[in-house]
Design a protein around this nucleic acid. Structure first.
Lengths: 118, 118
DNA sequence: CCGTTCCTTCGACGTCCGTCGTAATATGGC
DNA sequence: GCCATATTACGACGGACGTCGAAGGAACGG
């Protein structure tokens, strides 16, 4: 409250120390969010929110980005009218060694190996 | 149906090939189930269902054991009247390299580092 | 047999989370 | 200023999951 009329469109990316294991695991347990992770990993660079291919509405996508950011899986920052998303690759390793890396790998395999006809 | 009156009390531990990433991540996203994992890892050997220290009723605990077994995180087998639970340490590594190992480590840290009064 | 112990099955209930549409805000270009 | 674009905030809804208690089956020991 007492916020000025103009919100300068800043994003606060939380510090790794504030993230719980519960938060991280819940974040990656959703298929839409894992799709975000996979697309970011495959792209190799940041992507704006609108460029993702997701099977949900814009507002739902915003929700998922928030969850991922608060779990320190991605970091976000504004760039003009768009919002860029990038993976936070090694930050979380101090707190949960190897975990995010393994999750990202599995997310990529999950999407690239989709052509698995039995 | 057409089941004999006496159920021989067998358990079918699914094969790793049938487990999805979704299943595994959902399984470990629950705090009670992570407690099971941590207690098993700390014990270093199998534990019967009744010896776990869990904040839920017996029937709920049974449910959680089922979820963990179907995700190939634990394997179960009867031993007299009790049901033994053991971690399936390296099975899942073929399918999700490094993932379960990292999760187990984080579960152990989560419970052993509980004495974190700030 | 009979009782005890251990675990499971079955409904039922409550809550949380993913989903949406609509309305609103910020930026950039004209 | 004004419009178009990009994203967010706000309620609302529905389904899924964690939870429980009560009843039941299985093994072991008398």
């Amino acid at each position: 409250m007492a916020r000025p009329k103009t919100t300068p469109r800043t994003v606060d990316n939380p510090s790794v120390a504030e993230v719980t294991l519960q938060q991280l695991l819940e974040a990656v347990a959703d298929p839409v969010r894992r799709s975000v992770i996979a697309q970011l990993a495959l792209a190799g660079h940041g992507l704006s929110c609108g460029t993702f291919d997701l099977p949900v509405s814009r507002s739902t996508a915003t929700h998922h980005f928030n969850v991922l950011r608060e779990a320190c899986v991605i970091s976000q920052h504004y760039q003009g009218t768009t919002k860029m998303n990038t993976l936070r690759p090694d930050d979380l390793d101090a707190r949960f060694p190897g975990l995010l890396r393994a999750v990202i790998d599995s997310c990529v395999r999950e999407t690239t190996q989709v052509p698995e006809a039995h």
